[in-house]
């Protein structure tokens, strides 16, 4: 593995790392199953709490809250690279920036899939009478953008927390305040969509989310080497 990686280009190392993350996840199926179960169980809990009678405001609020907690759950699992020995080994073979980008990509993919799943199960359990298909697609687009923003922020924060050796509790403490701006923008977008406001009139929220994702990703890419240093 190290032979192959040290001679390769940054792009191929990044691709390898991403594929490797998926392969590892696929091997330990209990991780993925846990994520799915957590998301489905939260949606079902929301269904029990709000029932099929959920107003559009409740629908909107619950969808974002479920996505947020599922995202925290997704980053909770420690990676093998978080161990001291593995990190020291990887440092000799690749640059930390490639690694954090691979990790962001991996989380983005997982959270995008998860947001589709959450959206579908929401329409199944809590009903879809608050929107027409077009609004539903716009809402799903918002969920996807939010998932990407969550992924970029939470991969950096979970890296900080795992480096601090404090585990998941610290990710939540650091992440919840920082994630609120994203949630604020997303809920505004969702409210606008469910109110029937035209997509183009509220699309600037998505632009904000994209800018946040890009900014956080760039900041994480620049700063991550400092986290890996000894």
């Amino acid at each position: 593995m190290s032979e192959r990686m040290s001679r390769s280009s940054a792009w191929s190392r990044y691709r390898f790392l991403t594929a490797h993350a998926f392969r590892m996840e696929w091997r330990q199926k209990h991780g993925l199953a846990g994520l799915l179960l957590f998301a489905l169980a939260s949606v079902y809990a929301c269904y029990q709490v709000a029932g099929g009678r959920a107003s559009s405001e409740t629908w909107n609020a619950l969808a974002w809250v479920v996505l947020m907690f599922s995202a925290f759950n997704a980053v909770a699992k420690p990676w093998p690279e978080d161990s001291e020995a593995m990190r020291k080994y990887l440092k000799t073979t690749l640059r930390p920036g490639e690694w954090i980008l691979a990790r962001m990509t991996f989380y983005s993919a997982i959270l995008s899939a998860l947001s589709v799943l959450i959206f579908l199960s929401f329409t199944l359990f809590l009903g879809s009478e608050h929107f027409n298909p077009r609004q539903g697609l716009s809402f799903l687009l918002g969920l996807e953008c939010t998932a990407l923003a969550f992924a970029s922020l939470l991969s950096v924060l979970s890296a900080i927390a795992s480096r601090a050796g404090a585990g998941f509790g610290l990710t939540a403490v650091l992440g919840l305040p920082l994630i609120i701006p994203i949630v604020l923008i997303s809920t505004r977008y969702g409210t606008d969509i469910l109110k029937g406001i035209l997509w183009i009139d509220t699309a600037h929220h998505l632009l904000f989310l994209a800018a946040l994702t890009g900014g956080i990703g760039a900041l994480g890419f620049i700063l991550f080497p400092y986290l890996w240093r000894d």
Partner: peptide, 14 residues
């Protein structure tokens, strides 16, 4: 010092 500096940069941007 390093971890908190990284977090502090994020915090200020936010």
């Amino acid at each position: 010092s390093r971890l908190s500096a990284v977090y502090n940069l994020f915090a200020f941007v936010i």
